[in-house]
């Protein structure tokens, strides 16, 4: 039981590292300025739906903070707030045990849209970006959405199995 949770944490950390190191090399040059895949976030959406939204909230805040501190450009706390909030809200709205695949993919799409839009909104409020939302939507948010969707499809089967195992064991322990 505990083992699986630690593996999940390690997996998230590994994904975070891959995001900054390997992923840019996998993308063709001209796409590197457009796509900003956030793989950790997608995994957290799965955690939020299939395991527990409170766990997802805490993990979102922790890994968002990690992202903020390591890539500290303008300010700290943006990713932390957005990742925590979005995963929690998504888990809060879709409170369905054993959600089927189309529903999960809807969550990925909505979550991805909400995530990038919130990021844009915060940067806009602090006037760190001047581009219009329409432009941003077309050039960053939608391409991101496609990558997130494909990544969600790839990890759907293995991740759901593992997460449901964690959830089931958690329930058993509570019952005992």
């Amino acid at each position: 039981m505990m083992m699986r949770k630690q593996v999940l944490l390690l997996l998230l950390f590994l994904l975070f590292i891959l995001e900054g190191t390997i992923v840019p090399w996998l993308l063709p040059g001209s796409w590197q300025n457009i796509l900003t895949p956030n793989l950790v976030f997608i995994v957290l959406l799965f955690v939020s739906i299939y395991h527990n939204r409170h766990t997802a909230l805490v993990l979102g805040i922790i890994f968002g903070m990690l992202h903020d501190v390591v890539f500290y450009g303008d300010m700290i706390g943006v990713y932390s707030l957005v990742m925590g909030f979005t995963t929690y809200i998504m888990g809060f709205i879709f409170r369905i045990p054993r959600a089927p695949m189309p529903l999960m993919m809807t969550v990925v799409i909505l979550g991805s849209l909400l995530f990038d839009s919130m990021l844009y909104a915060i940067y806009r409020v602090f006037s760190l970006t001047q581009v219009s939302y329409d432009w941003n939507l077309l050039h960053h948010i939608l391409p991101d959405l496609v990558v997130h969707f494909v990544f969600g499809l790839i990890i759907y089967v293995p991740l759901r199995k593992q997460l449901e195992k964690i959830a089931r064991r958690g329930k058993k322990e509570k019952a005992a």
Binding site: T21, Q32, N33, H67, V70, G73, D74, V78, T129
Partner: peptide, 8 residues
């Protein structure tokens, strides 16, 4: 490592 966030 690289952060590809368009703003930051």
């Amino acid at each position: 490592s690289v952060n590809s966030d368009p703003v930051n």
